[in-house]
Design a protein around this nucleic acid. Structure first.
Length: 298
RNA sequence: GCGCCGGUCGGAUAGUGGCUAUUCCAGUGCGCUGUAAACGCACCGCCUUCGGGCAUCGUUGGUUCGAGUCCAACCCGGCGCA
């Protein structure tokens, strides 16, 4: 079975850097290519705002699934899975090793597991209509459309209920889950550091991003007609930048809010990763160990 | 100094004298196989054998069967007048 490397970990920990390093060293002379696993970096134009790797940092290693979606539209896991699988295939065909790198555990799991997901595009009109209903009402509706999903969904989570209904309606029948046996062997490398160390990393990266022009980027996006609501919807850091620009927050308050936002995210990421026993954990400075581990596994 | 207003969990807030002091934010933990940086849930004074137990609404007294709520004095903060 073909091997695929996965590099995951909390925000700001240094995944991208490691991915490039591995891509250069592993599997000589062909090396590897990186496929991002980040639900926000898929959007074009939000570079600093999502902490995207820069051209220079890529050091010539091809990176995929960055900038593949318009921020005005909604991207979905199903789409991610489809695109990523295609990229994996192509990279392997080139004799290289695919390196999945990112912090969106949900996407990594979707890709790593054998579940087949038919693509169902978001239906704004339906969503808007459903949003006005109560969670209980939505749950009842879902139960009729897709009892299996209703069985294990969180009945209080309207967002999930709405998406489930949307899918059931779009498919026109009760959605079935199809599992296919795994095609690739995923080697999962997790990066982890002590809490206070991660906090420092997050702070310093934030400072860098602010200096790098997060605010200017925000202006550009607004110019291109990305509605304000989208930023909120996506939970982006930009929302605090905008409040600062409007004078609603002091610079210090803005920074603290940004930090808080990132830290909360980092914790949620860990909650997700913790459950996966396949992840082999390292600290970012254990490069030699990681390389050794990979060589053994490949 | 006088007058007015206010002091409730880390912050903000609700609370006709009567069950269990509310909600939001922050904090902590967790969940999530179709929006996932989104979204949801639990806990969030102290102790706990997880059944519950003990506190608590600036302080001290008082009225009352019963006070966060009424009264008095004091302390603190804000505003106004001197």
């Amino acid at each position: 079975m073909k091997k695929v490397i996965v590099i995951l970990g909390q925000t700001a920990i240094g995944k991208s850097y490691l991915a490039v390093k591995i891509a250069k060293k592993i599997n000589p002379p062909a090396g590897g290519e990186v496929i991002s696993a980040d639900s926000r970096q898929v959007y074009k134009g939000i570079d600093i705002g999502t902490g995207k790797i820069t051209r220079a940092e890529m050091k010539g290693i091809p990176h995929h699934l960055l900038d593949v979606a318009n921020p005005k539209n909604q991207f979905t896991v199903a789409r991610y899975k489809k695109l990523a699988e295609k990229k994996i295939k192509e990279i392997i065909a080139r004799g290289k090793i695919p390196i999945i790198c990112g912090g969106t555990g949900f996407y990594i799991d979707a890709l790593t597991r054998g579940t087949v997901l038919p693509e169902v595009l978001p239906n704004r009109k339906l969503r808007k209509k459903l949003m006005t209903k109560s969670a209980i009402a939505l749950f009842v509706t879902l139960k009729k459309l897709d009892p299996r999903r209703a069985n294990n969904i969180d009945p209080k989570n309207k967002i999930r209920l709405i998406r489930a209904i949307e899918i059931a309606k779009a498919l026109g029948k009760v959605p079935k889950i199809t599992e296919i046996k795994p095609v690739y062997k995923f080697i999962k490398i997790g990066l982890r550091v002590p809490e206070d160390s991660l906090k420092r990393k997050i702070r310093s990266r934030l400072r860098k991003r602010i200096r790098g022009g997060m605010a200017a980027e925000l202006y550009d996006l607004k110019h291109q007609g990305v509605p304000w609501k989208r930023f909120i919807e996506l939970g982006f850091d930009q929302k605090y930048i905008a409040l600062y620009l409007r004078g609603k927050l002091s610079q210090k308050e803005m920074f603290e809010n940004l930090f808080k936002n990132n830290w909360q995210y980092a914790k949620r990421q860990m909650t997700w990763f913790k459950r996966d026993p396949e992840i082999k954990w390292f600290t970012p400075d254990q490069y030699k160990k990681i390389e050794k581990y990979l060589k053994k596994k490949l």
